[in-house]
Simulated scan of single mutants.
Amino acid sequence: MIDLRRVQVLRVLADRGTVTATAEALHLTPSAVSQQIRLLADDLGVELLERTGRNVRLTVAAHALLRHADALHEQWERARAELAVGSRVTGTLRLCGVSSAVAALMAPAVARLRRDFPELDVHVAEEESEDCFTLLLAGQADIAVVLPTAGTPPVDDARFDQHVLHEDPQDLLVWRGHPFAEGGGGGGGGDVDGVRLSDAAAENWIVKPRHNDTYDLLLAACSAAGFTPRVTHHVKEWFAVSALVAEGFGVCLLPRLVPVPGEHPVVRVPVRGNPRPVRKFLCCVRRGSGSHPALAEGVRALRAAVGRLPG
């Protein structure tokens, strides 16, 4: 017999790449991860890992097992969902997502769930997109709202169901005295006609390059517009970014879901022409789990939150 929990450890190891990272994701010790893989190998009578210096890599047999493991876990998720259909919406529902999704979508969605299903215990975690997929895979999150980046799984990844939840335009945020801000008004709408992203090619940009989905999106948008941004200040939190923009240290792309701090003398300038930078939020669950009553209600609440967004 195969213990699916051991197969799950192998799946996370394939995703994270190292025993240490797998242990961190599963809240285990590295020795416990290694033991689970050894026991699984003994159950199957094959070698699943081979050493390459100080690291390990998956064998051909391990990769073959993983192809079947995705189908096995999908079927298990479907079975769990089917067993729960018709019962009251209870238990625990864990949501994770990027910060702007937490603020604009998850907060009202969780409020709706708390009102409609008081027996459902809902937890929210703010994480970067890649980490959200790891949490889903490890069974430590049920629904994720993420931004697709170079490091996230493709939309047809057999482990997840992904669909577009919301498209969020991005504007250029500049200080009030910037030439792009003429006619924009304080803290608000910007020039009616806006600017092309390529017009900002010579600007200094404010964004944190490491462990930040926004950086990948900025690079992709600027590359499509024909330039590489000159990043001069490495800051991630939007209030801090806005404060630096207000002092004239650079510009940034500000998503529509993120409000402009009223105390900062900055102007949100629409970006016109093509390409227009837009963030696409994906709603993701483990494949096969979407019909579970709690997950289905969670996704429904997120869609309702999108429907109440301005504009």
Rank of each mutant, 00 (worst) to 15 (best):
M1E: 08
V7F: 02
V9G: 01
L10R: 03
R11A: 14
R11D: 07
T20P: 00
A21I: 05
A23I: 00
A23H: 03
A23D: 00
E24D: 15
E24I: 02
S31K: 10
V33N: 00
Q35W: 13
Q36M: 13
R38A: 12
L40C: 06
L40Y: 05
D42M: 09
D43S: 14
R51Q: 14
R54H: 12
R57A: 12
L58Q: 12
A61H: 13
H63D: 14
H68Y: 04
D70R: 13
A71T: 14
Q75D: 13
A79R: 13
E82F: 07
E82C: 07
V85D: 11
V89F: 02
L93C: 08
R94H: 10
C96E: 06
L105C: 03
M106N: 02
V110N: 00
A111H: 13
A111N: 12
A111W: 03
L113A: 08
F117D: 02
E119C: 04
D121K: 02
V122H: 03
V124T: 15
A125G: 08
E127V: 11
E127C: 06
D131I: 07
L135N: 01
G139I: 03
Q140H: 14
A144H: 04
A144S: 09
V145L: 09
L147G: 01
P154T: 13
P154Q: 08
D156Y: 09
A158V: 15
Q162C: 10
Q162V: 05
H163I: 04
H163Y: 04
E167R: 15
P169R: 13
D171M: 06
L172G: 02
L173Q: 09
W175Q: 09
G177D: 15
H178S: 11
A181V: 12
G186A: 14
V192Y: 12
V192S: 11
L197Y: 06
D199W: 06
A200S: 04
A201F: 01
A202D: 15
E203F: 03
E203A: 13
W205F: 14
K208P: 00
R210F: 10
H211F: 08
T214R: 13
T214L: 11
T214H: 15
D216F: 10
L217Q: 12
L217S: 08
L218Y: 05
L219T: 05
L219K: 09
A220W: 02
S223E: 15
A224Y: 03
A225L: 09
F227D: 03
T228P: 00
R230T: 14
T232H: 07
W238V: 03
F239I: 12
F239L: 10
L244H: 04
A246C: 05
E247V: 01
E247W: 00
G250R: 01
V251I: 14
C252S: 15
R256L: 12
L257Y: 05
P259T: 12
V266R: 05
V267Y: 01
R268E: 11
P270T: 02
V271M: 04
R272Y: 00
R272F: 01
F281T: 02
L282C: 03
L282M: 13
R286K: 11
R286F: 04
R287C: 04
G288L: 06
S291R: 15
P293F: 05
L295Y: 00
A296N: 07
A296D: 13
A296Y: 07
E297G: 02
E297W: 06
R300E: 11
L302T: 06
A304I: 04
A304N: 04
A305C: 08
A305K: 06
L309F: 06
G311N: 12
